[in-house]
Amino acid sequence: MSAGQNAALVARIIHHSVVDGPGNRAAVFLQGCNYHCSYCHNPETISVCCGCGTCVSMCPAGAISISDGRVIWDDEACTGCDTCIHVCPHLSSPRVRRLTAEQVMEEIRGDIPFIRGITVSGGECTLQRDFLVDLFTLAKEHKLTALLDSNGSYDYMADAELMNLCDGVMLDVKAFDTAVHKELTGRGSEPVIENARKLMAAGKLTEIRTVIVPGVLPSEETIAGIADVLKEFPGYETLRYKLIAYRNLGVREPYNTLFRSPSPEEMQDLKAFAEQKGFRNIVVI
């Protein structure tokens, strides 16, 4: 199959993003995730639509219909009110399109002079790995860098075809402790930690990111744990560590009322802690 033929479920394309890697980038969000984090800020990207049709009658703009058990979304009629994702009982969204890499590149054609690369996020992007290979092949033809924003469940370095095209991975380290990680995501932390080590060794670790939820996740333990794993590698000090303050915007019920956001002081304390552990390039957002 030639490059660009593998279709993926695309939840959203952002034409200019400053938070998805270095410089100005286009960001492509894929639908579907193998984690089920309670604090997820875009939970509507977790599941692939099962065609139940709950959203169809609820849409105030009449932009959703159902045909042959498939939910169809009318981009033109949609007003972006988000009712559909709020009523979806399955953590999904009807506003997902099946696009090939060529179609995605066509949508961002006008952005190419202004961006230095593409970042693919999710959901969990590696679940649609063949599409990534197609998209990154096309990205390279346009001299764009290609980054993955990924949850650490995929064995990246075992996939030489993908990693030869990918410039780096922005890796979520949600928790170092495997029991905590399992409780949060449904899976243990071992593959994530192993991936951090292998990506670092291969020079493909662009960034580590940890979401800070005070009183729920042991953030210091996670920072200290990952520091221990990475400190044997050159470049460890300059590796970007992004500490992301939990915000309840977009988080589903009942979790949106269970967690609280960290204060700016708590974030600064964690930054200082990470510095103590040897990180020098820490971004707090």
């Binding site: 410089g23 002079p113 202004f114």
Partner: peptide, 20 residues
């Protein structure tokens, strides 16, 4: 304020604009 954390992105925009 999203731009404040990443002035490189502004430079990317200017480079792209000037090339056009």
């Amino acid at each position: 304020e999203t731009a404040d954390r990443n002035p490189d992105a502004i430079v990317d925009l200017i480079k792209g604009g000037f090339a056009q």
